[in-house]
């Protein structure tokens, strides 16, 4: 029982990082209206940005997160210019192939510049563990896990506020609903779409650094998988709804960790993919109420 609860905590922690990823991904798909295959690499750049911030400025977590957001944000501008701007009115698959090419480009550039080996990242957050006693069971919470979960909640809330209370946020929502109408309302669609893309990327960057801290390593090869997972989690939320996507991410994290419990760690990805395929077959719109033919 205790063991299951501990795995659940693991699942919730990992799930909250996935939730952040899914939120970022949904922002991009919703606002820009196009899917991306290069989300993993965007997370990677965020992770590396923060890694170097640790190298140069010491163990300052807040600064690292800002750096992660900033690096991914800037990369988002590049992605937008290269893969999206030109293809707004072209068939979907062209932009998609472009993002595939871009992801290959980033992955190998990073390997060239930073080296192919994985770099360790330890001692960022104190390795303390807190034990919560509920009656006879003791559940362990690592300080790391608590920090991660709190951060994710913080960002999710701030993003919601941004979308509902600020002018930019409202503009973004308008663009995601109907580009033509937004244009007619005087919104600069191109600039807004780019902003949406960059915000989504920025959150991806933060998810990237959180993952790296959680795994104690910064690597350049693991991110392709996360693109898929971000997409899967988003799908669960109907691709465009932020809160449902976050829920989807949380579910995925929990399912993965519980899956490992009953079988072996080598099957981790099988759970994610199988889960995704099942969802797509049974209920393509995920948790969302109505079907929207987004893509």
């Amino acid at each position: 029982m205790e063991y299951l609860l501990n795995q659940l905590v693991n699942g919730i922690c990992q799930g909250s990082i996935y939730a952040l990823m899914a939120i970022g991904y949904s922002v991009i798909v919703g606002v820009v209206g196009m899917v991306t295959f290069t989300y993993g690499e965007i997370m990677m750049i965020g992770a590396f940005g923060a890694f170097y911030s640790f190298q140069f400025f010491g163990n300052n977590l807040a600064l690292a997160i800002v750096m992660a957001f900033a690096s991914s944000f800037l990369l988002g501008i590049v992605v937008y210019k290269v893969c999206y701007e030109r293809f707004f009115n072209a068939p979907r698959h062209i932009a998609l192939l472009c993002t595939i090419g871009f992801s290959m480009l980033m992955k190998n550039l990073v390997q060239i510049v930073f080296g192919p080996e994985q770099k360790p990242m330890i001692n960022i957050i104190n390795n303390a563990t807190y034990t919560l006693r509920l009656g006879s069971v003791a559940v362990d919470f690592k300080l790391l896990q608590i920090v991660v979960m709190l951060l994710v909640i913080l960002f999710a809330v701030s993003l919601t506020l941004f979308f509902n209370r600020t002018r930019w946020g409202v503009a973004l929502r308008a663009v995601s609903q109907n580009k033509q109408a937004a244009y007619m309302m005087g919104i600069n669609v191109k600039r807004t779409a780019m902003l949406g893309n960059c915000i989504g990327c920025g959150f991806g960057g933060i998810a990237g650094i959180l993952l790296s801290i959680y795994y104690y390593t910064v690597s350049s090869t693991i991110w392709g998988n996360f693109s898929m997972k971000a997409f899967s989690a988003s799908v669960l939320g109907g691709l465009v709804d932020l809160r449902l996507s976050a829920l989807g991410g949380l579910c995925m994290g929990i399912i993965e960790n519980l899956g490992i419990t009953i079988s072996s760690a080598t099957f981790r990805d099988v759970f994610s993919f199988a889960f995704l395929i099942v969802i797509l077959v049974i209920r393509p719109q995920g948790f969302a109420a109505k079907k929207g033919s987004r893509v």
Partner: peptide, 20 residues
């Protein structure tokens, strides 16, 4: 080595731009 893949990636992106 890695530059090989960089070249591919650039070619793919260029293809999409110029001749999809």
């Amino acid at each position: 080595d890695n530059w090989r893949y960089v070249i591919y990636a650039v070619i793919i992106i260029m293809m999409m731009w110029l001749r999809p």
